Amino acid sequence: MGWLSGGTPTQIAPGTDRQAEYIRYESLYRAAVYQGWVNILFQEAGFLDLGSRRRNRRLMKRISAVNSAIAGHDDNGHTGILQGGEQRLCGELMAVPDELDQTHRRCLGYLEFRTKLEKDPEFARRFQPVLDYIDGVAGVDGAAMHRRLVLIHNALIDLIDFLDPRQVWVLGDRVRLPVPDAPEIPERLDLIHPTHRAIAEVEEPAAAHGENEPPPEPQEVTS
C-alpha cells in the first residue's frame, strides 16, 4: 500500500533481483490466497449466516465489489486483471484438502504455491495474467493500472472493515485512497455485441449524410 498512497514501501534489498522477485511473487500470492479463501468460504460455509439477512447481503455486496474491482466491471474489463470465472478458477486451484482434517480445505502455503508455479505449467498459466499485470506487460498504461489497484485496495478495505470493525484480526492502517479519474478509453467496435455491431455498421453510412440531414430518398425505378 505504501507506493499506492505515495509513501515509501519497506524494502530490504532495494534495486536488487531479490527485491524484484519478492515484490512479484508476494503480490501474486496475496492475490491468489484471497481467491482461495473466498472459494473455501462459499464451498464450506454454503449459505453464510451472519445473524441477519441485512448483514448477509452486506457481506455479499462487499465480496462482489472486490471481485468487480479485480475484473474491471467499471470500464467493461478494459483494465481488469481477472474475469469472474478466472477468479473462481484460481480460487479452486488454491484450495487443497487439509491433511489434519480431510473434511475441510485450506489454502496453499507460500512454499507450496511457489513450487507449483515452477513445476506445474498448467497451474502457472492460470496465474500468468496477474503476473503480467504486476510486470506492466498486460497492455494497460501506468495511470489506468494505478487506478485499478486503488479500486481493488478500497474494496478490500471496505470488506476488512465489515468483517473486523474492531481491528482484532487485521492490524495496521485502513486508509481508503482517492480514486483517480478514469482515463479515456477509445471505443472499440470489436468489443460490442455482434448484434449491436451489425446495427452500428448499418447506421454508420446514414450518419455520414449529416447529423440532422436524412439520407437521400431512393429513386423510383420505372420500366
Rank of each mutant, 00 (worst) to 15 (best):
G2H: 06
L4W: 02
L4G: 04
G7D: 11
P9Q: 04
T10P: 12
T10Y: 15
I12E: 13
I12Y: 11
A13L: 15
A13T: 08
D17M: 01
Q19Y: 05
Q19C: 11
A20K: 00
R24Q: 12
Y25G: 06
E26A: 09
E26W: 01
E26Y: 06
S27Q: 08
Y29L: 02
Y29H: 04
A31I: 09
V33C: 00
V38W: 00
N39R: 04
F42T: 03
Q43D: 15
E44L: 07
L48C: 05
L50Y: 03
S52G: 06
R53G: 15
R54K: 15
R57S: 15
V66I: 05
N67R: 13
N67I: 05
A69S: 05
I70W: 02
I70D: 04
D75G: 10
N76M: 03
N76I: 01
T79H: 05
T79V: 11
G80Q: 04
R88F: 02
L89D: 14
L89F: 14
G91I: 02
E92Q: 15
D101V: 06
L108G: 00
E112L: 04
R114K: 11
T115V: 14
T115W: 14
K116Y: 07
L117N: 02
E118T: 08
E118Y: 01
E118M: 05
E118F: 02
K119I: 08
P121M: 04
A124R: 13
R125D: 13
R125Y: 09
P129K: 11
V130G: 00
V130A: 07
V130Y: 02
L131I: 02
Y133R: 08
I134S: 00
D135E: 15
G136D: 07
V137M: 10
A138D: 13
G139M: 01
G139E: 04
A143C: 01
M145W: 01
H146L: 12
H146M: 11
V150T: 11
I152A: 05
H153I: 04
H153A: 03
A155P: 02
D158H: 09
F162R: 05
L163F: 12
L163N: 09
D164V: 04
P165H: 06
P165I: 09
R166Q: 15
V168R: 15
G172P: 04
D173S: 12
D173F: 02
R174W: 07
V175R: 14
R176P: 02
P178E: 06
P178L: 09
P178H: 08
V179L: 12
V179E: 10
P183F: 10
E184W: 10
I185Q: 12
E187G: 08
L189H: 07
L191N: 12
P194R: 10
H196N: 13
H196T: 14
I199H: 12
I199A: 15
A200E: 14
A200P: 08
P205A: 07
H209S: 13
H209T: 12
H209N: 13
P214L: 03
P214G: 06
P214A: 11
P215R: 04
E217V: 08
E217D: 14
V221L: 15
V221Y: 09
T222P: 06
T222M: 03
